[in-house]
Nucleic acid binder design. Structure first.
Lengths: 212, 212, 212, 212
DNA sequence: CATGAATGAGAGTTCATTCAT
DNA sequence: GATGAATGAACTCTCATTCAT
């Protein structure tokens, strides 16, 4: 979690991490632009220099989180490993990302609906506004599907090679996503389990569920 | 599960089911009293004859959903079954509840935070208001823990009797809760799997994860 | 905290006349909802009970003014008179309307552009919103053309019967509209000329311009 | 009339013509400094190197338009012609100016009110600011009266010499101003009538109205 | 000269809530 | 009970304007 470097130059990404934190605390609707601005020592009006509006700001937060997570995941997904090892690595990656960035993780779980409703409240003003928003939002969802697909494909591949028992890969993947996403709800830094330890438990659980 | 009564006499519970639906669509903050009222052919003002304020209304929705689910669950939890059979039954119960009542299920996942923030924004006006609210909210959370505890205890018992392999019961339970809660996000009535079938997959998955 | 306003019940039309006055003073953009509300002892928020938004309020003001004027005009336009007499009556009607209602008259001259720009800033929210707005706006413009057409037709008819000399009826009509509209800019109640006297001058001028 | 210079060196007058155009499209209040700046490839901040503030910019636009028109008019007004010929020339001059420069013409009609309101919103900060503004604004209005006076005087003179019939010169002049100003509202370049042709119609109309 | 960043002030709008009817 | 009217509070967003670079 990147803190405020100083009080001077605030750039887009600083705002995004700060925003994620506030979002995590209050949820999209209860979070005001003023809240976010305060977190980076700006006024609400100043935020509009960096983001077209609140919806875009949310979208940027989510994109940041997803990009960050996907990047980590792809390293593992592209490695030359057995499907079991690969899945283990992917689960660990995902869980570590979530525990290391609870705020963003939570945003990705809880604010999706706000993202969907967002288009409705968008002004017409500039058609470009909404068009760009919808385009980027769709891309976000596509990448989200891609992300989930990485897990599903690995499970399927493991079934094909006989490493895993036969299951409903799509549903098991969704169960897994749910389990991992839910972490951002209950995980507390400094609790009984570290992020790494939690990742171990998850890996153990899911591999057990899939073992023959 | 049972809703939609006559169109004339609107009672508290009608409003709650309707509210859950709107809440599911829009989220707590984006849902206006007017939205909820419209769903039952009332005006916003009229809602105040039935509920003290919006926060209480939400609390009532959540209580309704939780009571409903716990009731089903206790039937199984108190039955004279092996721990594996019991856990299977509980999972099935939970999943069927969620799939049969996506709206309320989603509310219980997504609007908890609103419930927490609620106390903060409560008007000080009537101390009794807030006191009662906080008391009932705490009770709600206690019952929620109790609900989760039913699962955890069964897993633990299964481990104790040797039916299940040794796992971190608390964490596995949370994984399970996450997986089940997440259902309300993606499940569509009439999709590839019915609620019952989905329940089967979940039972299979979790028992596999716990088998020795 | 709902308070009782001093004035009894304020209805839509009261607001419209008041709004016209403020609009006349400040122009659409410089007029705030608060300004209009203050004029009728309401808060800005209360205006939204009566009008969907500022654009609709303006539209209502203009509709009111146009309806009022057209009604007067049609009485004359449908009477059994020579074209010269008819035109005289119409001019007198128009001028008296404008001088008797400077505020609304001015609104109809100066705020048309705001009406046109209005659609752009309308929210999507409810498609119905914008659709209704555009529909009513178009109807307004159609009625405005109809209004102008009454003059043009009478001039043309007078030319056809030989009462008037040959002129470019459309352009003369526009000159006339301009002259009459402009009255709302400079006319002061209690000045050198009463509304009736001014009407006489206008009638004299235009009939002189058209006489053979 | 002459606009559009190079694209590099932007000077005050370029900005004014550009501003007039934007003003014509949107009106003073809806026109932002950014809009005007964009029209000449500058940023809003840069405009402040050329004009003290938005009010002054508007004032400059109006001054430019009025000076331009008066200059043309004085040529005719000072010529050695009969009053009828003089009035014809003046009308032609005015109409041609308006049709050739719809934007500025419209600004002079529609933005006068903004000019009036401007003083009120002026920041107190620099007294000099407001003093200078008010002084120049008053001068503008004086010149505007002078402009209208040229017409009125010619009509009066024509009545005195018996060229024109007896009318209320002041009121007829205002009717004329209204008719001419209104042109900027409806005139479209490339329409049925050219500016010159429209001028002919106007000359014909007003001389007919004044002929004995 | 030009500009990117920042901001105070304020506008339109929404909404939970109250109260007289 | 039910509702129409009203409102205070709060929010998103805009904009003229300043200033350091």
């Amino acid at each position: 979690m990147a803190r405020k470097p100083a009080d001077q130059s605030v750039d887009r990404e600083d705002i995004l991490w700060a925003a994620a934190e506030v979002l995590h605390r209050n949820g999209y609707d209860s979070t005001t632009m003023k809240d976010i601005a305060a977190q980076v020592n700006l006024t609400a009006a100043s935020l509009y220099h960096h983001f077209k509006n609140k919806d875009f700001l949310l979208l940027n937060v989510l994109e940041l989180g997803l990009d960050f997570t996907i990047e980590k995941l792809e390293t593992v997904a592209n490695a030359d490993l057995s499907n079991a090892e690969k899945l283990a690595g992917m689960i660990r990656s995902h869980v570590v990302c979530v525990t290391g960035n609870v705020a963003v993780g939570a945003a990705m779980v809880f604010e999706i609906r706000s993202l969907l409703n967002a288009s409705l409240s968008s002004k017409i003003g500039d058609d470009t506004f909404m068009e760009e928003f919808v385009a980027r939002r769709n891309q976000f969802f596509a990448r989200r599907d891609y992300f989930e697909g990485l897990f599903r494909d690995t499970i399927q591949a493991g079934m094909d090679t006989g490493e895993f028992r036969e299951v409903d890969a799509a549903t098991v993947t969704r169960a897994m996503m749910g389990a991992h996403n839910w972490i951002s709800v209950w995980f507390k830094e400094g609790g009984r389990l570290s992020g790494e330890e939690l990742a171990d438990v998850m890996v153990d659980t899911w591999l057990a569920a899939l073992r023959k």
